[in-house]
Design a protein around this nucleic acid. Structure first.
Lengths: 157, 157
DNA sequence: ATTGAAAGATGACCGCA
DNA sequence: TGCGGTCATCTTTCAAT
């Protein structure tokens, strides 16, 4: 992958904020012509620096969601167990994020469910019937703010 | 906000996956003409169902990041303390997500830092000098997969 | 960096339930 | 009247110079 100059970083910063801005608008902000901006964006997309562009939906518009943080302790810590578990979590749409972590627990999940009944269904299907899971603890998010994945780039735009 | 029919849900599902698809492509998938699809997307953007569209960057392309999960226990649990803390966290770009939670801790943060030196700097600035923070525990993510915020919509496209 | 061609989005209008 | 379809126009993108 390419090394990024300050123009690239500024473009990425803009795109992280709002990917619907035209090359012309971004170019204006970063001090580049529309065509040059476009070329750079194209390259950043092609080399994978920009992984993808997605729509962020409003949870309340979709009937509201509950966010849960689940800490999981595996019953046995073999390589295979971990890989299997990772692979399984990839299939569960309610699992937003999955971290394999240091400390007294093995995995931390961030989940979003319609309601606790929904959560119950998922735990039965994926956790209770799963021999690699020893125990899990669920924390309910009362309020969630700052939902995002913007990587701090340290440039002003 | 509007109530969403199955066309809308399918469109949203497509947009969550990849917001760069043209109305023509999405229309084909959901069974609508390009213009009708376009009209619906426009409406979903205007009424806030689609909050925004953003670029997801590749962490490794940006020199690699370390993800941390930080559990925070406030020293005193007043309303003002919580609001102040929320407001402060909003200002820290390295704080990706911030959850106010049930259980033995008050907040759980998901952070992304360049390295532990970077984390040290942030803790000094925002945590140690913060009277409302009693104690905090840091968990390091060895591996992070399934980074995302896609809301499960329960429709096939 | 400019320009011209192709692609996509937007808006007007028609028709159907 | 509301919503989808078609067509014409304008904007944006993309490639070649």
């Amino acid at each position: 992958m390419s090394d990024l100059d300050s123009f690239d970083l500024k473009i990425l910063s803009c795109m992280q904020e709002n990917s619907r801005q035209t090359a012309e608008v971004i170019g204006e902000k970063v001090g580049l012509s529309p065509a040059a901006t476009q070329r750079r964006i194209k390259k950043l997309r092609e080399d994978g620096t920009i992984k993808k562009e997605v729509a962020i939906l409003c949870p309340t518009a979709l009937g509201g969601r509950t966010t849960l943080i689940v800490q999981i302790i595996c019953s046995c810590g073999g390589e295979a167990t971990i890989e299997t578990f990772k692979q399984q979590m990839t299939q569960v749409p309610e699992v937003q994020q999955c971290y394999y972590v240091t400390g007294s627990t093995d995995f931390i999940l961030v989940m979003t469910v319609k309601d606790m009944k929904d959560f119950d269904r998922i735990t039965r299907k994926w956790f209770f019937s799963n021999p690699s899971i020893g125990r899990f603890e669920t924390i309910v998010a009362i309020d969630t703010f700052k939902e995002g994945f913007s990587i701090p780039l340290g440039v002003a735009v």
